[in-house]
Amino acid sequence: MNTVLDLKDVRLSLKGNAGPVEILRGISLTVREGESLALIGPSGSGKSSLLMLMAGLERATGGTVSALGQDLTGLDEDALARFRRGNMGVVFQSFHLIPTMTALENVAVPLEIAGEAGAFARAMAELEAVGLGARAGHYPSQLSGGEQQRVALARASVGRPKLLLADEPTGNLDTVNGAAIMDLLFGLRDRHGATLVMVTHAPELAERCDRILRLADGVLA
């Protein structure tokens, strides 16, 4: 199977008031096509930062990050944005829907940005797939937390990305809604054959993945 993610000796340090803080200290790992990987560990261990590096949303201070054969460390912000189109879908704990757009428009945006035809028809189909066809005209503020995360899932998957990245997708949801979201996430992964990397605190969710990696203090345990 092809390698989708290849990280070599990745380091990340951020400037803090009391000097630089080492977030990641030499992470090396590979993720293969179709695999699902759970990143677990205590708060502050660097899980989310590692996911952001994989998504090209954070820049490593050392080492290399390759996604789908592309070295991300050499790309500028705009090149990274272009690379994400159609290749990656990202789901956040806080949903990050655009408050001024309806659910349908939120889902259609990545297709519009990529200049793909039939953006709204495809967005509608994706919304229906997550059970929100009836709420297409609602704004984020008119949706519950679970519904907002379902819109975010539809938005992440509408472009048929090869790589799905999820940062604590159930962290802001209750148990029932959290379970429903996970079912949807894995359902989408299966339907589109995407590779999934997920950050989570919950062991039961992690166990649904093919592989679990534990981070502690910026290194793989």
């Binding site: 998504a55 949303l57 912000e77 705009d78 944005a81 272009r82 994400r84 189109r85 159609g86 990202v90 990050h96 829907l97 655009i98 408050p99 001024t100 945006v109 990545p110 940005i113 990529a114 938005r155």
Partner: peptide, 16 residues
């Protein structure tokens, strides 16, 4: 700020 970040996550370039 969050909207701009989200647009970038979804593949929007700075110029857009």
């Amino acid at each position: 700020v969050a909207t701009i970040a989200t647009l970038k996550v979804l593949g929007a370039e700075g110029s857009l």
